[in-house]
């Protein structure tokens, strides 16, 4: 098991290297030089940019060097100094912006993931056990609606309904009075009371898909012989379902974590714009629009890296809970 984990971690390194190259490629894609757009921006604001400033910026970002060298430089600064470069638009180090926004993205993504699984697994089991019952039809209908309605539309509709009928604005993660306040229990509570909206909005589609998968896998497992064996032992039906069938059915669902995570993160970006959430999504979009390329590239790199790590964790989890997965060479 340990050697499997180590091997998987080692395989992750080349993946991350390729991701960082692509992310850096995105930075370099637009025509022109970031410095030119930066200088134009500064000059349009009436500032004077001296020759020395331009030279020092060029040296700092190694812009006088070819692309591969610049890539190595960028990576080196990230590894050595945790310096992801400078955001032109915000005129701040990218690292600071990341530190500000990333925790919210991670928090929302993880809670959404937990919500998705916590809702989908029991509903999927119920739907399979009570196949073609009213409850099954109800959840199936809700599930298909959840799959069919785009996230941003759901967000808009929820915002409209809550504002119109309850006079509550559900955008953002904090009420105005807490937005700039220091962290306290009250602020945390305020965040939790806002958090459910994005979780539901982002999680609905994923939950709906997972319910369908869980239901299908569970139906498959329930018809297998070992379930009959478990019944023939004299176990209670609930134990037969949960200990035997559901325990096996859950394995493929767990392997889906790695696949659900990128969905949640990219789904989060659009919803965050609509709901005005302080996460990485709106910032990334803005960065792409204004060609704020160090910011955009760094976000893409970090989010992709997190997804790779998430996938790795789900694989390790699966290998841990499913004895049939061979992680030893001799097995």
């Amino acid at each position: 098991m340990l050697s499997y984990v180590i091997r998987r971690c080692l395989i992750m390194i080349p993946t991350l290297v390729v991701i960082s190259m692509i992310a850096f490629g995105v930075i370099d894609l637009p025509p022109g030089d970031y410095l030119t757009s930066y200088i134009v921006q500064l000059e349009s604001q009436g500032a004077q940019v001296t020759e020395e400033q331009v030279e020092s910026l060029k040296r700092r970002y190694a812009l006088d060097q070819p692309l591969p060298l610049r890539y190595v430089n960028w990576i080196w600064r990230i590894i050595r100094y945790q310096d992801f470069g400078q955001s032109w638009n915000w005129n701040r180090p990218v690292a600071g912006l990341l530190a500000e926004r990333l925790p919210f993205t991670i928090a929302i993504s993880l809670t959404t993931l937990i919500f998705t699984y916590a809702a989908a697994i029991p509903i999927g089991i119920y739907s399979a056990v009570k196949q073609y019952s009213w409850g099954d039809y109800l959840f199936t209908t809700i599930g298909f609606l959840g799959l069919a309605i785009p996230n941003f539309l759901l967000a808009l509709v929820l915002m409209f309904i809550f504002y119109r009928y309850f006079g509550v604005s559900i955008g953002g993660l904090f009420s105005p009075e807490y937005r700039d306040a220091a962290w306290s229990f009250a602020k945390f509570w305020d965040m939790m009371s806002h958090l459910w909206v994005p979780i539901i909005v982002i999680g609905t589609a994923g939950t709906a898909g997972l319910i369908r998968t869980m239901r299908a896998v569970m139906l498959d497992e329930l018809s297998k012989d070992y379930v009959q064996t478990a019944r023939a032992k004299g176990l209670k039906e609930i134990r037969v379902i949960l200990k035997h069938a559901a325990r096996v059915a859950i394995n493929p669902i767990i392997s889906l974590v790695g696949w659900t995570l990128p969905q949640i993160i990219s789904g989060e970006a659009i919803v965050a714009v609509v709901l005005n959430l302080p996460t990485t999504g709106p910032l990334l979009l803005q960065a792409l629009l204004t060609q704020d390329m160090y910011l955009a590239g760094s976000f893409i790199f970090i989010l992709s890296a997190l997804t790779v790590i998430g996938t790795l964790l789900s694989d390790i989890l699966l290998a841990w809970i499913d004895p049939r997965i061979r992680y030893d060479k001799e097995a």
């Binding site: 012989d225 070992y226 009959q228 064996t229 325990r247």
Partner: peptide
């Protein structure tokens, strides 16, 4: 008690 036809599938694979 009962034993079944298919020994390959009548035991739970994860226990």
């Amino acid at each position: 008690s009962m034993i079944f036809q298919e020994p390959m599938t009548s035991l739970n694979p994860v226990y």
